[in-house]
Design a binder for these strands. Structure first.
Lengths: 243, 243
DNA sequence: CCAATATTTTTGGCATACCAAATACCAGAA
DNA sequence: TTCTGGTATTTGGTATGCCAAAAATATTGG
């Protein structure tokens, strides 16, 4: 066997233990491919095109400059996430959710968020709760949310994520984020709708008030009803989004 | 469509061509490996051994009779599920949850199940709700749950899964099942504990009654509080289970 | 010209080989 | 014996090649 290679071998030095930073773990191609593909899938508007979107292993490997192996592993991970579905000898298809599935997901979101609200009333600090108002400080009666839908939509998502985070429950945070990723595709067309945007802000503020008052039951109810309202809205008005 | 493949029947050589049954779709090795490994992980008592359990790709591939490729893909899937964690150049370790994580998961479970209860009160059929009692028909004052812990524990899990299923929400069902898989490892030592088993049955019956009464708020509350009770129990008494 | 069929191409599934990092192991020096 | 340096081994990561099924395309018979 050939001699390996010298590591370093500082002659006489006694540099000892200074500044030996942990070398970058540097994520694997598998994980890089996973992140890249996930972002690409989330970025594309899969509901805009009439025919289903397909992925090609070889094309992707060439595109990302790696072999098929890490690509396939990334695909397997994405399939676990429910973003794609590989059909043997047919192809890899980007999953499109039906309206029913989206409504179902939003209901689960409501369940998780109401539990988060419940926990927050017993553990979160007052200042952290109050800080939730900052997400909407740019909106008021002189600057209505419905006149800045895109901007308000961003603040909306950020608010919900910050809310969940206050629960200090990693499980609730992760599960909710997963759901939001799936629902996000509809966000532009549903959560951002003007007619619903108008009622959204007051409901958010009402949730914050209940949290500050440490009213567990009320906070839970308001958080739940708010998101269930979104579910009902999508169920009623989301028809045109689906083939 | 015509026969895509020839059923070659050369005059001279007559043997062969028999018993070439059209093998079914037959899941891939990747999926087989995934199922096999998942079952193996769930079956082992990862909290019994002091040192962490490791998996070896090559050993597994030899064990299952397939190459490393499908094994690695299965591992990637299991990692997405949170069952294992691969450390580059170190190994694949079966993840052990801390008590805090388990409590956190049970809280999420409570959130999902209370939402399921809510939905059930508005959509499920009376007979299906009543049928939930059957899971406990073998228990009563002449046959106490705490005297048949193992058996009652099975009925307990089955009841909860049946309950969630009644919501007819695939998302709630899937998310809850995922959680149950992770929590299951503790089931024998926590859910099955005698002191808690005693109060479990009446609570279950109370949930069913609220469902039958179509009392949405009460059913939700009872379902939530029941499972939150388990969370509190584990938080208080599950100390000895963790290193 | 059309339909049935044969052929080529495409595509995911799987096996294998090699690499580099991390570790285990061992011989030799003090 | 113990410590040290280095080599061999282990282990996950990645690239490649081939296979079979299915789709796409070409071909042929009427």
């Amino acid at each position: 066997m050939p001699a390996p290679k010298q590591t370093k071998a500082p002659p006489v030095m006694a540099d000892a233990d200074i500044a030996i930073v942990r070398i970058a773990p540097e994520t694997s191609f598998k994980n890089k491919a996973y992140e890249a593909l996930k972002e690409a899938i989330l970025k594309m508007d899969i509901y805009a095109t009439p025919e289903q979107v397909m992925l090609d292993e070889r094309a992707l490997s060439e595109r990302l400059g790696v072999s098929r192996t890490p690509i396939r592993e990334a695909i397997a991970m994405l399939e676990q996430d429910g973003f794609v579905k590989t059909v043997p000898r047919r192809g890899i298809v980007v999953v499109r959710r039906t309206k029913t599935e989206i409504v179902d997901m939003i209901r689960a979101w409501a369940a998780l968020e109401s539990m988060a609200a419940r926990l927050i009333t017993t553990t979160a600090r007052k200042k952290d709760i109050t800080a939730l108002r900052d997400f909407f400080k740019d909106f008021g009666k002189d600057r209505l949310p419905q006149d800045h839908v895109e901007e308000y939509s961003k603040a909306n998502i950020a608010f919900h994520q910050a809310l969940i985070s206050l629960s200090e429950s990693p499980v609730l945070v992760d599960m909710t984020n997963d759901i939001l990723l799936h629902v996000r595709g509809y966000r532009q067309l549903t959560i951002g709708r003007k007619d619903r945007t108008a009622t959204s802000l007051p409901e958010h503020l009402a949730i914050i008030e209940a949290l500050e008052a440490r009213d567990t039951e009320l906070a839970e109810k308001r958080a739940r009803d708010h998101t269930l309202g979104l579910a009902a809205y999508v169920e009623a008005h989301g028809q045109e989004l689906f083939s």
